[in-house]
Computed example of a mutant assay.
Amino acid sequence: MNIKSVKLYGIKMPLKVPFTTHLGTVSDREGILIEVIGQDGISGYGEAVAFSSPWYTEETIQTCLHMLKDFLIPLVSKQTISHPEEATALFSSIKRNQMAKASIEMAFWDLHAKRQNMPLAKLLGGTRTSVPAGVVVGTKTIQESIRQIQDYLAKGYTRVKVKINPGNDFQLLSEIRQNYPFLQLMADANSAYTLDDTEQLKVLDQFNLLMIEQPLGHDDIVEHAVLQRSLKTPICLDESIISLDDARKAAGIQSCRVINIKPGRVGGLGPAKKIHDFCMLQGIKVWCGGMLEFGVSRAHNIALSSLSGFTIPGDLSSSSRYWEEDIILPEISVENGYVSVPDKPGIGFDLNWKRINETLIFEEEYIL
Rank of each mutant, 00 (worst) to 15 (best):
L244I: 06
D245Y: 10
D245R: 12
D245L: 09
D245C: 04
D246I: 06
D246C: 11
A247P: 08
A247I: 01
R248T: 04
R248C: 06
R248Y: 14
R248V: 05
K249T: 12
K249L: 13
A250Y: 03
A250H: 12
A250Q: 04
A250V: 02
A251F: 12
A251W: 14
G252T: 05
G252D: 13
G252K: 11
G252F: 02
I253S: 08
Q254Y: 13
Q254L: 09
Q254N: 15
Q254I: 07
Q254R: 13
S255Y: 13
S255E: 10
C256R: 02
C256S: 14
R257T: 11
R257G: 15
R257N: 15
R257M: 14
V258H: 04
V258R: 03
V258S: 04
I259P: 05
I259N: 00
I259S: 05
I259E: 04
I259G: 02
N260W: 10
N260E: 09
I261P: 08
I261V: 15
I261G: 00
K262E: 09
P263V: 08
P263G: 08
P263L: 03
P263Q: 00
G264R: 09
G264T: 10
R265N: 11
R265G: 01
R265Q: 07
R265M: 06
V266E: 00
V266G: 04
V266A: 07
G267P: 12
G267T: 06
G267Y: 05
G268I: 07
G268Q: 00
G268D: 07
G268K: 07
L269H: 00
L269A: 11
L269S: 01
G270S: 15
G270V: 12
P271G: 02
P271Q: 10
A272T: 07
A272E: 01
K273R: 14
K273N: 05
K273S: 04
K273E: 04
K273W: 06
K274E: 15
K274F: 11
I275A: 01
I275M: 09
I275H: 03
H276S: 08
H276L: 05
H276D: 09
H276N: 12
D277S: 10
